[in-house]
Simulated scan of single mutants.
Amino acid sequence: MILEPPAPRYDAPSPADGLNWVKSSHSGGGGNCVEVAPVDHLVYIRDSKDPYGPVLAVTPQAYVGFLTATATGEFDSPR
């Protein structure tokens, strides 16, 4: 049996949806930040410079995996 991938979702929240968007305390306020809004079973991620732009939705487990990989240097360029 062949399983089809899930259809893309186009119901991403807009800034007017009243989500509590937060950014890291390490962002420094320069406007070049990533913001997140955890809601129920998803974590929404957007670019703070473009609040009406694309929004990525991931599971909390995927978000924690991303944070862990980032913190441990998994995505760092080889030296």
Rank of each mutant, 00 (worst) to 15 (best):
L56I: 14
L3C: 05
H41Y: 01
D76C: 09
L42S: 13
Y52C: 11
H26P: 04
P60G: 06
G65P: 10
M1H: 10
H41R: 14
A71K: 15
N32I: 02
L42Q: 12
P38T: 02
V34E: 06
K23C: 03
F75A: 09
L3Q: 15
A7C: 06
G73A: 03
E35Y: 02
S77Q: 12
H26S: 09
L42F: 10
G73M: 01
M1D: 09
P51Q: 01
S24T: 04
P15F: 02
S24A: 10
P13W: 02
H26Y: 13
A71H: 07
Y44K: 07
K23P: 00
S48H: 08
E35A: 02
V36F: 02
V36M: 07
S27H: 05
S27P: 04
S27A: 12
G53C: 09
P60T: 10
V58F: 09
N20A: 15
T72P: 05
T72Y: 01
A12L: 13
R79C: 13
R79A: 15
S14N: 11
V58H: 04
K23R: 12
H41E: 14
V36R: 03
R79Y: 12
D11G: 10
L3P: 01
R79T: 14
Y44V: 05
S14I: 00
G65D: 14
D76K: 09
N20E: 15
L42M: 13
P78N: 13
P8D: 11
D40Y: 00
A57V: 04
E4T: 12
L67Y: 06
T68H: 11
P60W: 00
